[in-house]
Computed example of a mutant assay.
Amino acid sequence: MGIKSFQGARKQQNTITEAVALKVKDYMSTKLVTFTPDQSVQEVVECLIRHKISGGPVVNSNNELVGIISEGDCLKQLSESRYYNMPLEHDNVEKRMARNVEIIDGNLDIFDAANKFLQSKRRRFPIVENGKLIGLISQKDILKAALQLKGENWNSATKGGS
């Protein structure tokens, strides 16, 4: 006669490895500095410096995304204005902005968003919903989300105690 052992079903324990859904929309900036196509490049430069940002979305009067303007776009204009002897205020955003803007889905997981940043070498992605600009996610926002995830994991691990 052998010894038989029986264990009943155990309730599944919550573990640290449980997937925590961190979505882009939970970490995107919604208070945005935006620009309009008719603004002067000089205004953009002043705004970038004042707000300590490196660029921003360009929207029309319906808050629809039409482009992105960056420090690099402004530097290019500055360089050309010197060459052609044209002051900054004579050029506008519409002439300098990037029009083929890559957007990112607000429901995208932050890890997939991090991969998208790495593949595209972009610093920021706009989030559009129903044709309207609703937010902007930057590399720094993704890093903040990752730190929060690490903090949540650390807290979960230490609450169980040993």
Rank of each mutant, 00 (worst) to 15 (best):
2 G>Y: 02
3 I>R: 01
3 I>F: 01
12 Q>P: 15
15 T>I: 11
16 I>N: 05
17 T>C: 15
17 T>A: 13
19 A>W: 11
19 A>D: 14
20 V>Q: 10
21 A>G: 12
24 V>G: 00
25 K>P: 00
26 D>K: 03
26 D>M: 11
27 Y>W: 10
27 Y>M: 02
28 M>C: 00
30 T>H: 00
31 K>C: 00
32 L>A: 02
34 T>S: 05
37 P>S: 12
38 D>Q: 13
39 Q>V: 02
39 Q>N: 10
41 V>K: 00
43 E>W: 04
43 E>H: 05
44 V>M: 01
44 V>A: 02
45 V>G: 02
47 C>K: 14
49 I>Y: 12
52 K>T: 12
52 K>P: 01
52 K>W: 01
52 K>H: 08
54 S>I: 07
54 S>C: 04
54 S>E: 12
55 G>V: 05
55 G>R: 00
55 G>D: 07
56 G>H: 00
60 N>C: 10
63 N>K: 06
63 N>V: 07
65 L>R: 15
67 G>S: 09
67 G>V: 09
67 G>Y: 04
71 E>R: 11
73 D>R: 04
74 C>R: 05
74 C>P: 03
75 L>Q: 08
78 L>Q: 02
79 S>M: 10
82 R>Q: 01
83 Y>K: 05
83 Y>I: 01
83 Y>C: 00
84 Y>V: 02
84 Y>P: 00
85 N>W: 04
86 M>I: 11
86 M>S: 06
87 P>T: 09
89 E>F: 08
90 H>G: 03
91 D>S: 09
92 N>W: 03
93 V>A: 14
94 E>S: 11
95 K>C: 03
95 K>V: 07
95 K>H: 09
97 M>A: 01
98 A>L: 03
98 A>W: 01
98 A>G: 06
99 R>W: 07
103 I>T: 15
106 G>W: 15
108 L>I: 14
110 I>T: 12
112 D>A: 11
113 A>S: 09
113 A>K: 03
114 A>G: 08
114 A>K: 11
114 A>D: 14
115 N>D: 13
115 N>C: 08
116 K>G: 04
116 K>A: 05
117 F>W: 10
117 F>N: 14
120 S>I: 04
120 S>R: 08
121 K>E: 11
121 K>M: 11
128 V>Y: 10
129 E>P: 09
131 G>R: 06
133 L>H: 01
135 G>K: 03
139 Q>A: 15
139 Q>T: 15
141 D>F: 07
143 L>S: 13
145 A>W: 03
145 A>E: 02
147 L>A: 15
147 L>H: 15
